[in-house]
C-alpha cells in the first residue's frame, strides 16, 4: 500500500546550448572545471552546442541556452538574435552577459566612434564593431546568473532546476548577508567604500572575505538604499564622482541606473 512511484512520462533529455560572446570565457571554463558536476551535467542533458568543450555543435531548437559575454560586433548581434529564436529559455551567465562587463564601462559616455578612434585609430574591421552591451540590450533574457566568474553552487542550483522543469529561485539579498555569515567585520565601520549593501549577493562575499571592499560586480540589489549609501560614502571623504567611477569599474552599470533614478 505504501509503494510510491512518480508516474512521469519518459521525457527526452533537455537540449542545451552554451555560447560565448565577447568576454574572457571564464564562466564556461568554470562549468567545465566543476569536474564531477560537469560529468553529471553531460549525463543528464543533451548538449547540442558547447564549442569550448566539443567541436561539433548542432545548431537547432534548444530548451535552454546559456549565454556568456557581451555583444560587441554586428556578427554577435545577429547570432544572439538567432539563438533567442531557437531557445525556449535564455540565461545570461556572467557579468559581461548580465551587465556588459568592463568593456561596457564607458557605454553612453561621449560617442562610441570617438572612443573607438582614439583606441584603434582608423582600422578596417572584419565585422562591424558595436558598443559593448549586455545581452538584454538586444534580446529578452529569462534568467540572470551574474558573477565574475559565476559561482558554481549557484550555477548548478539554477541549471538543475531548469533541466528538471522547475522555476529557479531568485536571491534578492545584498552581499552583506553572506558577508556576515562568513564572519567578516563590516568594512563600512572602518570607512572603507564598500558597495555590499547595493549589490546583489550570491558571490559568497568574495572580496570582503579578503578584506577588500565589494565593487558591485554582480549588479544592483533592487532593494538597496542607493541614496543614503552614496551619502554615507561621501561622509568617508569620497567625492560623488570618485564613487561613480568605482562603481563603473566592474560592470556596476546597472547600479548606476538606480543611482540616476535617484535611488529607491
Amino acid at each position: 500500500m505504501t509503494e510510491i512511484s512518480n508516474t512521469k512520462l519518459a521525457v527526452a533529455k533537455p537540449k542545451v546550448g552554451i555560447y560565448g560572446f565577447t568576454g574572457c570565457a571564464g564562466d564556461q571554463l568554470l562549468i567545465i572545471h566543476t569536474e564531477d558536476e560537469i560529468l553529471n551535467l553531460f549525463n543528464s542533458v543533451d548538449i547540442r552546442s558547447f564549442v569550448m568543450a566539443s567541436s561539433n555543435p548542432i545548431e537547432e531548437e534548444l530548451d535552454v541556452a546559456f549565454v556568456e559575454g557581451s555583444i560587441s560586433t554586428e556578427e554577435e548581434r545577429e547570432h544572439i538574435l538567432k539563438i533567442r529564436k531557437r531557445a525556449k529559455i535564455l540565461v545570461a551567465i556572467g557579468n559581461c552577459a548580465v551587465s556588459g562587463g568592463p568593456q561596457a564601462m564607458f557605454t553612453g559616455d561621449n560617442t562610441f566612434e570617438k572612443r573607438m578612434n582614439k583606441v584603434y585609430g582608423n582600422v578596417n574591421f572584419l565585422t562591424a564593431p558595436l558598443e559593448a552591451k549586455p545581452i538584454d540590450a538586444f534580446v529578452e533574457v529569462d534568467y540572470y546568473l551574474p558573477g565574475c566568474p559565476i559561482s558554481a553552487p549557484q550555477a548548478f542550483a539554477l541549471i538543475s532546476r531548469l533541466i528538471h522543469g522547475a522555476i529557479p529561485e531568485s536571491y534578492p539579498h545584498p552581499v552583506c548577508h553572506e558577508c556576515k555569515l562568513n564572519e567578516n567585520r563590516c568594512l563600512l565601520l572602518d570607512k572603507i567604500a564598500c558597495f555590499g549593501p547595493l549589490t546583489m549577493g550570491g558571490c559568497g562575499s568574495a572580496c570582503p572575505n579578503h578584506g577588500l571592499p565589494c565593487v558591485g560586480c554582480w549588479g544592483p540589489n533592487d532593494d538597496g538604499n542607493f541614496e543614503h549609501h552614496l551619502e554615507l560614502l561621501e561622509s568617508f571623504g569620497k567625492t560623488r564622482e570618485e564613487i561613480l567611477r568605482l562603481i563603473r569599474g566592474y560592470g556596476g552599470h546597472k547600479i548606476l541606473k538606480y543611482i540616476e533614478k535617484g535611488g529607491k
Binding site: 558536476e37 553529471n40 551535467l41 549525463n43 543528464s44 548548478f156 542550483a157 541549471i159 538543475s160 532546476r161 533541466i163 528538471h164 522547475a166 529561485e169 539579498h173 545584498p174 552583506c176 548577508h177 556576515k180 555569515l181 563590516c186 555590499g196 549593501p197 532593494d223 538597496g224 538604499n225 543614503h228 549609501h229 554615507l232
Partner: peptide
C-alpha cells in the same frame, strides 16, 4: 537604513531562517 541585514545576523535573539530546495543535477 541600508537593509543590509547585519543587525539580524549579529543579534543573539534573531531566529529567522529561510528554506530552499536543491536538486541533484543528475
Amino acid at each position: 537604513c541600508l537593509s543590509c541585514g547585519q543587525c539580524s545576523m549579529v543579534c543573539p535573539t534573531c531566529n529567522c531562517y529561510t528554506v530552499t530546495d536543491v536538486f541533484d543535477v543528475t
